[in-house]
Nucleic acid binder design. Sequence first.
DNA 1: ATAATAAAGGATAAAAATATCCGAAATAAA
DNA 2: TTTATTTCGGATATTTTTATCCTTTATTAT
Lengths: 142, 142
Amino acid sequence: MFSKACEYGIKAMIYIAQQDGTRRVGLKQIAEATDSPVAFTAKILQTLVRDGVLVSIKGPSGGFNLSRDAEKINLAHIVKAIDGDEIFIGCGLGLEKCDGSRPCPVHFKFASVRDGLSAMLHSTTLKEMADGLDAGKVYLTH
Amino acid sequence: MFSKACEYGIKAMIYIAQQDGTRRVGLKQIAEATDSPVAFTAKILQTLVRDGVLVSIKGPSGGFNLSRDAEKINLAHIVKAIDGDEIFIGCGLGLEKCDGSRPCPVHFKFASVRDGLSAMLHSTTLKEMADGLDAGKVYLTH
DNA sequence: ATAATAAAGGATAAAAATATCCGAAATAAA
DNA sequence: TTTATTTCGGATATTTTTATCCTTTATTAT
Ligand code: FES
Ligand code: FES
């Protein structure tokens, strides 16, 4: 469904959101908390910094924090920054583009599922996810 | 969403289903009709033959046909044969397994979308897809 | 029987995704 | 100012996915 990079990215962002907004979170801490490879996570966080949804500070006591409130960042934004928008608008059978005026055989059934996924990702914020973690109802690792 | 192999496999199966059940369909014809690479398509069809959902016959006038009626083959079967069942049961954030008793942050929202996709794939038959093609309402290529 | 045809299967090749390593740059603390 | 820390960015390595090639095997038609 999502790439590994995207899975790591979402987990990292949820973890950062869970930490107090003022406190900075370091790469190693993030990678450990999300059970993700450190160096690969670094690359993904760089992508999110370039995208502008994440802020990084170098040096001692440096680290990462969200560029805006956790309730103002949704999962769709993160997915799009890392995996692009294929999952939101792409054809289920890989046709060049999903086009209702020249639909593939699965179009009508697939597009509604895909749009449901898109709506879910757009409406789900980091705040909700972080709150679930705080409440001990959900987990970032197995 | 699906692998390229799976996209090619689904398109190939729909195309084969569209052809008269008695007539055999050759590899090159399938690859051309579905705009897929010939040799790679061959590999995927081999997988489906081994799975038992497709039958192949060698030699002149050989080719492929479905092992049973097109209305008795659903898309989920094909997807599972090629991509496995990760998409049906896997965790959205890549945790080892999706486990409602130890859910990841996206579990409750993700699982319902994923289960909707699964239901769609299970309830959609090759016959429906082939009929749409016959009616000229849908297309296998862009 | 022989030749032609078509899928099977094994060996590679190419491309993309995943993952690691290390020196450079920035920053804060000593 | 020096040192330690931490991210950045480029290079490289590994693994998986995608794709091709070629020989073998089965089958049909001549
Ligand atoms: S054309 Fe294939 S999903 Fe829309
Ligand atoms: S545990 Fe992640 S989707 Fe169920």
